[in-house]
Design a protein around this nucleic acid. Structure first.
Lengths: 141, 141
DNA sequence: ACATACCTGACTAAAATGGTCAAGTTTAGA
DNA sequence: TCTAAACTTGACCATTTTAGTCAGGTATGT
């Protein structure tokens, strides 16, 4: 299973973006400074977010990024998926007709990982950017 | 967050062990053959399981491993913990009095990861080796 | 005594991670 | 029109983690 800094950065950056994009597009430079994330790395991440239509870009001076959807419609599952954080448990190989061990049957724990995956994905599907915004306002600095 | 093959192997091996240890200790060689896991790797894993008192070892000919507890009392969380699969989301650094970014405050998404961690741990704490055994009998080959 | 099986630690190839670096293109505004 | 801000793209890389292998042990039942 993968759930690393890239995913966390993506979420942090989007929450930041959501808080500031009412007025103007938000530049990655600003996000980088506020959140302490490398600019170059942010560019990689936003490239993926854009491809997945989570954000829109505006080029040129005063340009930046804006959300492409309502914060309520951006679920965590969308964000993680966009930056290739596959919320997949370690997989048994799904090749041809063979089972998990190269044997003809499913491995002993196959069902377990399926269950876990559902469990985690449920969490992510029920959590939107808006939820995080609200949550953050409460404990705002 | 880490959840890799080592954890999966540990679970697979323990389920296998639980199914056969009523009669005799089970040798790693047998588990290796049945589950298709490298013997050398299994030895590393069982060394940890033993340190965490999940299994007991019996040396010498006809030796092997047996469970050290009732399958109902071996939760997944114990197993993962034993083999160093820390079910931890990527952490903000917890150094000194500083917050997550080296700033004085918690990072925007701090609460989110805490929630997620609880969510996943709950799943693991409620799942025992016995559950897996039963589950496996149903779909037994 | 000897085969079986546990035990331990060092080592390693390959992949993933978390970036950096370089060289663009686009566009607002002076 | 010139320029600087900001997006765009792709290559590159050091470090860490993963998933093992290898080479020796030591203990013990028969």
């Amino acid at each position: 299973m993968k759930l690393t800094s890239k995913g966390r950065y993506a979420v942090m950056a989007l929450v930041d973006l959501a808080r500031f994009d009412n007025i103007n597009p938000v530049s990655l430079r600003d996000i980088s400074l506020r959140q302490g994330i490398s600019l170059d790395y942010l560019e990689q991440i936003f490239s993926k977010l854009k491809k997945n239509e989570i954000v829109k870009s505006i080029r040129g001076t005063q340009g930046g990024y804006v959300l492409n959807k309502n914060p309520n419609d951006i679920k965590l599952t969308n964000i993680f998926h966009a930056v290739d954080e596959k919320v997949k448990t370690v997989q048994c190989k799904k090749e041809s007709k063979k089972g998990c061990n190269g044997k003809a049957t499913k491995c002993i724990t196959h069902n377990l990982w399926d269950e876990l995956e559902v469990h985690i994905n449920t969490f992510f599907e029920n959590k939107s950017l808006k939820d995080l915004l609200n949550n953050n306002k409460e404990t705002r600095v």
